[in-house]
Design a protein around this nucleic acid. Structure first.
Length: 771
RNA sequence: GCCCAGGUGGCGUAAUUGGUAAACGCAAUAGACUGAGGCUCUAUGCUCGUAAGAGCGUGCGGGUUCGAGUCCCGCCCUGGGCACCA
């Protein structure tokens, strides 16, 4: 056999596998199904990232192993291609986003193919394809019909200089990323999705699924359900009152003041009673200019202004308390107003001290008594609040799915007829956002001016587009039936393939994408489209790959690793192995090119063993072989790829050491290696004279009896310190072990002159003499 | 401030879930082999010692236990996330 030259053999097998259609999933096959899913990438101009490779290499290994285990595997791929970066790039480079997207996808595809992933390319999808987003729009219409999509006045980030709306990402320290002007808020009517209606189910159904515990915890924290009470505090000399939400009703007798958010309507409602209105207005103006993030960043200094002339009454004890406005209270959580109990709340205490507000101490025991009396009088209505807010679904951008709604002066917001879907995104030359804050689509009269589907009078299309999250909230369903133009996917096929058996992606998608897609799936279940309540049976997340300088890889730092260069230098199999070997799969890991050297050496060892694999039998290898089958099988299942590979290295090192290597043992090694390093394994497999792919072989099974060691090293401790070791039979009895131990010279030395209090014997492990 | 994760050799890390700390890989040093080596093999946690050996050693301080990287209490540090969540 020639020298190991990955560049030659890898290309060859990639082409052959594609021709053989080895990795196509079969609908309704009699084999049991396995749906393995990776988060589909956003095809950016920078090309595939070594971070992508980590997730894809690992799940490709899982998919390949599952096929060998006899499953009908669906391992699909597609493109999440709508979004801001493509649009911004287009504006700068004057290339249409459709064009850059096309190019980027072609590049990603080429890169992915050069890594030899076993995707079923016949099911490739693209969220920007009208045949795809027809169904994204269809789902929106169903949400609208069920009252889960609605419009509301919501502020957007507004740059007064550029005269465009900005994404949070484009606001840096409260300033516009492009021109550095102070960003303002502009109120705009926008579409929202009522995800809050699903909040309880999104928490409760987590019990049904196998996600990493920390992922579940993060979802629960994000939804942030809290049960408490709502209380109305009446205003003196006025009919109005301020409603607050609290989880600590039991502390209400210690309440000495109230705080309302600067956005709270009570401020304008009480305007003529507020004595220091100018000061208050000034404060409110300043607060409104701050982003939520800024308000949260200003941790140390809690500012606020008293509403002079206003007093509220604590309904539980009739005490008159002052009302303040402060921006540490946010308008969108709870009721936008709080009762402050400085004795029990650190934040309230800090604020009270700074502003010379009274602090009142009331013991909780006393309060309980008082509270019971109050409750009898019917105060404090039970209430549940969530951190989770409804999902703002409008974007004033070009490069997204048009929202299929027509606005009619008479009929209001009217849904587009389903048979008119998709509402295609018009191809335009100028996609800069407008100076009015509307989407660029608003300028295309020909597209905007339509007739109302209901009353046929002149009407206008909705010109906002959907966020990037829309297309990715249901894509896993489309893979199942990617070309269907009657329904989003055939219900029988959905029933066969769903739910996804194993979904892997980044931790950064734990809260938004995962929650949004679960919400949509639940909704689709409710309207009879999705077959179950949860889309993903199992969710794992991979840690990010950091650059050698310990920072995130980013074009601006100039520390990005291009997988093409690595493949060129070490081969795709070495890269794949390295991505899995570098550390625990769910932890962040620092890229180090030197590690690739080891992978390449290992593969060369495997390659060179070919010369040696001739003898019929070598009993010395049997045990290690079976141990390795067990370890690799279990480690892949538990996504401990690093230790699976180190076990294979141990086996290969032993095979090198042995003079005799049976062909059967070598073939076993190849099968175990194949999911992780497919090219080299397939090449050697054919060189050994096989006529069919190694991936059509079945996964090796181990024999439990052959794994057990007959002899072990029994550790001898004296007072917990290792003093000696003896080789014994595994099944050695306690008495025998004790006897052997006490005969040892070293042991005698250590226990000389001491009285043995007891001896602890742990079968198969150690013996400890306490004296 | 809150939430999550994590601190183990020069580096990436492993440890049968309370039982030999450092498997596997990278790097470095020394030695062996070779005409030569950037090949291969052997050794190397730290300190003392020629050695045998002894002591120390998993962020820090306590504790439980025959025995702790692993469990409990307190603290420090690093990374990631965040919408000050009442």
């Amino acid at each position: 056999m020639e020298k190991y030259e990955p560049q030659k053999i890898e290309k060859k097998w990639q082409k052959k596998w594609e021709k053989q259609k080895l990795y196509q999933a079969k609908d309704f096959s009699k084999k049991p199904k396995k749906y393995i899913l990776i988060e589909f990438p956003y095809p950016s101009g920078q090309g595939l990232h070594v971070g992508h490779c980590r997730s894809y290499s690992a799940l490709d290994a899982v998919a390949r192993k599952k096929r060998m285990e006899g499953f009908n595997v669906l391992f699909p791929i597609g493109w999440d291609a709508f979004g801001l970066p493509a649009e911004n790039f287009a504006i700068k480079a004057k290339v249409h986003p459709q064009e850059t997207t096309r190019k980027n996808i072609a590049n990603y595809k080429k890169q992915m193919k050069s890594l030899g992933f076993s995707f079923d390319w016949t099911r490739e999808i693209n969220t920007t394809d009208p045949k795809y987003y027809k169904w994204t729009q269809w789902i929106f219409l169903q949400l609208f019909k069920k009252g889960l999509a609605y419009q509301a006045e919501i502020p957007i980030n507004w740059c007064p200089v550029c005269k465009i709306g900005l994404a949070n990402e484009e606001v840096v320290g409260g300033k516009c990323e492009r021109c550095n002007a102070q960003v303002e808020k502009k109120i705009k009517k926008q579409w929202l999705l009522r995800i809050t209606k699903y909040a309880d189910r999104l928490i409760d159904d987590l019990e049904k699924v196998d996600y990493l515990e920390k992922v579940k915890a993060q979802q629960i924290n994000w939804i942030g359900k809290s049960c408490g009470a709502e209380i109305k505090f009446p205003i003196i000399n006025n009919q109005l009152s301020i409603k607050v939400f609290t989880t600590r009703l039991d502390t209400i007798f210690g309440c000495t003041y109230m705080v309302v958010a600067p956005e709270h309507e009570i401020i304008s409602e009480l305007a003529n009673q507020i004595l220091n209105l100018t000061e208050v207005k000034k404060y409110v103006r300043q607060a409104k200019r701050k982003s939520d993030l800024e308000r949260t960043e200003l941790v140390k200094e809690k500012t606020g202004v008293e509403l002079k002339g206003i007093k509220a009454i604590n309904p539980f004890n009739q005490e008159k308390i002052p009302v303040w406005v402060a921006d540490y209270v946010l308008p969108h959580y709870g009721t936008g107003a709080i009762m402050a109990v400085p004795f029990y709340d650190e934040r309230d205490l800090e604020f009270a001290k700074k502003n010379n507000i009274a602090v009142k101490k009331v013991s909780l025991a006393d309060q309980e008594k008082l509270l019971n009396q109050a409750k009898k009088q019917g105060f404090g209505k039970k209430a549940v609040h969530y951190k989770l807010r409804d999902w703002i679904f409008s974007r004033q951008h070009y490069w997204g799915e048009p929202i299929p709604i027509i606005h009619c002066k008479k009929c209001g917001a009217v849904p587009v007829s389903e048979k008119d879907l998709p509402i295609k995104l018009p191809y335009i030359e100028k996609y800069q956002p407008t100076k009015t804050g509307e989407s660029p689509l608003a300028k295309i009269d020909k597209w905007v001016d339509v007739k109302c589907p209901k009353c046929k009078s002149a009407a206008k299309r909705e010109t906002d587009t959907m966020p990037n999250w829309a297309g990715s909230s249901w894509y896993f369903m489309r893979y199942i039936d990617p070309n269907n133009n009657k329904v989003l996917a055939d219900s029988k096929k959905l029933k066969y393939w769903m739910p996804v058996d194993w979904y892997n992606g980044g931790f950064e998608h734990t809260t938004l994408h995962l929650l949004y897609s679960r919400f949509w799936y639940k909704f689709l279940y409710d309207i009879g489209v999705a077959p179950q309540k949860e889309p993903y049976s199992r969710r794992t997340s991979h840690g990010i790959v950091l650059a050698e300088d310990h920072r995130k890889m980013s074009k601006s730092f100039g520390n990005v690793i291009n997988p093409d260069d690595i493949i060129q230098k070490y081969g795709a199999d070495a890269l794949r192995l390295y991505e899995m070997f570098m550390g625990p799969f769910d932890q962040a890991i620092i890229w180090n090119e030197k590690g690739l050297v080891g992978m390449r050496r290992f593969l060369e060892k495997v390659w060179n063993l070919f010369q040696k694999a001739k003898t019929p039998k070598n009993a010395k290898l049997e045990k290690l072989l079976h141990q390795t089958i067990k370890k690799v099988t279990e480690d892949i299942e538990n996504f401990k790829f690093n230790t699976a590979i180190s076990q294979l290295m141990i086996l290969v090192n032993e095979m090198e050491r042995q003079n005799q290597l049976p062909v059967t043992s070598y073939q076993l090694l190849l099968k175990l290696l194949a999911p992780m390093a497919p090219h080299i394994s397939e090449e050697i497999w054919y060189q050994l004279g096989h006529k069919k792919s190694i991936f059509e072989e079945s996964w090796p099974k181990y024999d439990d009896k052959l794994i057990k060691e007959e002899r072990i090293t029994l550790v001898i401790q004296v007072n917990g310190k290792v003093r000696d070791k003896i080789e014994v039979e595994t099944g050695i009895s306690e008495e025998q072990a004790k006897k052997l131990t006490l005969e040892r010279e070293k042991v005698k030395k250590w226990i000389q002159g001491k009285k043995i209090k007891k001896m602890i014997f742990i079968k198969g492990k150690l013996i400890n003499i306490v004296c």
